[in-house]
Amino acid sequence: QPYPNVGRPATAKEIKAWDIDVRPDFKGLPPGSGSVAKGTEVWEAKCASCHGVFGESNEVFAPLVGGTTKEDIASGRVARLTDPSFPGRTTLMKLSTLSTLWDYIHRAMPWTQPKSLTPDEVYSVTAYLLNLGGVVPDDFVLSQQNMAEVQKRLPNRNGMRTDHGLWPGKSPGNGGKPDVQATACMKDCGPEPQLASFLPEHARNAHGNLAEQNRAVGAQHGADTTRPAGA
């Protein structure tokens, strides 16, 4: 005991109170169940005000559902993610592990009253959202037992890659090898520079008056963006 009198064992009750994480293999998932029907009720009472009745709202956040198809459910890849012109990405378009949705709603929603839902309520709203996305039928009852089965129908379950170098451990990933290789050319490098993008004049003051966002003294002062450029 190199650090006498510091710290104490956690009790079983304490661990139970705080160890709420649910892993992709569903370790940590508490017993319980909830139907789509029950989920509709919970949703309308506790969620719809922010996310919209059909999870479609982007008033407070990106939509939760939409953008997925039957084909995606079959393939496990959301086809629309390959389309650069498709505007937003809904939660269901990205979701690859069902545990994640359950865990997050359980720990963090409703936003203003996190951790107020019972496990059964979490099962039920999760079922409701899955039903909106066509992943489970209208009469479905989601439960600790069948989560693993439903996982197999997630539209984007095969949509993740870990074959990259940005994970700071051995696995998953390639162990840290960068994907982009640049060189440090010093003279007469690359093509003659040409402007490709800049803010349009009408956005000049969109972030407020930049004169007020710079120190009053200094090598440079802030531009007065309440006046047109060059004025």
């Binding site: 890659r161 940005l166 994970w167």
Partner: peptide, 9 residues
Amino acid sequence: GRHRQYTSI
């Protein structure tokens, strides 16, 4: 169309 997951560095 796939996402890189666990990108952290």
